[in-house]
Design a protein around this nucleic acid. Structure first.
Lengths: 215, 215
DNA sequence: GTGTTCCCTGACCATACGGTCAGGAAATGA
DNA sequence: TCATTTCCTGACCGTATGGTCAGGGAACAC
């Protein structure tokens, strides 16, 4: 879990600026390489090259390849959890779910590599973050399901299965990150423009909100 | 593209039963291993073990790891294309899109490994099947977009963006294959039952059809 | 039978990988 | 200034990988 080197952090808990900066460089490079090559296909040498550091230096900050990988996966998971705040404190499904979709679409655009690493991890059986699935993700999901069910009981939306609604939102929003390459190919080889990202978000939001009778 | 050994097939074009059977065993094992470990993480030795054959025998039938991988990816792509027939000859969107969703959900259940291999391939930039994306998939997509546009013009469904509708269908249906592990974890660690698969298909169909005003 | 094609595989090879380590440089604190 | 901690890295190691190959066995056509 902790990726610190053998020596514990400074007593003051203030990691030196050098350490912080290098960890940042390494994590950025690692996210990209893991996303593009998968855990098995990624090499420490390639990550080192992208970070502009010697390979041995990576092992100074991250003991093993798996430690580094775990940190990358945890990062995107944390970002997604934060986006869920859009869900809470919303008076009605159109507001709450609409905001959640918008937040997740924005993350897909801003953190496509992290999303891919997560997808890859889950597809391979979540060997590294199984505990997160069973604890944090499970309880988060239960909470959201309860909220949706409340909206249904109040007659604010159609009686759909909350669980499959959540899966649909995850699948659709993350698709724009995980399948970026396919989408770009079908877009004439060019990345989606600002306007196209907005159109995508609007389309997804419109179909889902109308689909659950909350439009 | 062709994964035949140096020696060309029999003149009669009838590959021996031995060859056909062994290729089948290898492809089944390879699909699973590639799905579980990714291209980089998969090893020929592991595939050989799963197929119950010596490693050298794999290289007799498939010259390289990449040849074998390509065959696996092509297989799932072909299966998906066949499912698209449900789309055609449908008089209205509810029938056509409903049948397409049902077909894709069934494939997600029957071929989860192939779906994962495809997802992994696309996520890594489609190094092996880029030509398929640019030719077959692109023209298939254009055709379907035209069909949807026709339905919209005829007032049979709401004027949504056909492209994003297709992405949503792909994303959602394939999610049940690619994220099987996450879904099972959130299902108490158990695979979806027949009943739950039906509920999933019904939920997805209901939300999308109502979402596009075709329910 | 017998010649020919197809099938099989243990042993091997070059390469590349994750990880280690000793020893030095740079920063930090008193 | 000088002692101590932190940071850095070239060289190295054991292992595992994709792929090769020679030589032998099975199947089949005639």
């Amino acid at each position: 879990m902790d990726a610190s080197p053998p020596v514990p952090p400074l007593p003051q808990g203030r990691r030196s600026a050098i350490r912080r900066e290098n960890e940042r460089l390494i994590l950025i490079a690692a996210e990209k390489v893991f996303a593009e090559a998968g855990f098995g296909g990624a090499t420490m040498q390639l990550i080192a090259d992208r970070a502009g550091l010697p390979k041995a230096n990576l092992h100074y900050y991250f003991a093993t390849k798996e430690d580094l990988y775990r940190r990358v996966v945890e990062t995107i998971f944390t970002i997604w959890l934060r986006a869920a705040e859009a869900f809470d404190q919303a008076p009605d499904p159109a507001t709450g779910i609409g905001a959640y979709i918008a937040a997740k679409m924005r993350i897909s655009r801003d953190h496509p590599y992290g999303s891919k690493v997560w997808a890859s991890e889950v597809m391979h059986g979540a060997p590294v973050i199984q505990d997160y699935l069973e604890t944090t993700l499970r309880s988060w999901t239960e909470g959201r399901i309860a909220a949706i069910r409340r909206w249904i009981d109040e007659g604010r939306m159609a009686p759909i299965d909350p669980r499959h609604l959540l899966y649909m939102i995850w699948a659709t929003t993350q698709h724009y990150a995980d399948f970026t390459h396919q989408i770009e190919t079908l877009n004439g080889g060019k990345p989606l423009s600002d306007r196209q990202w907005k159109a995508a978000t609007d389309s997804v939001t419109a179909i889902i909100l109308r689909g659950i009778g909350a439009a």
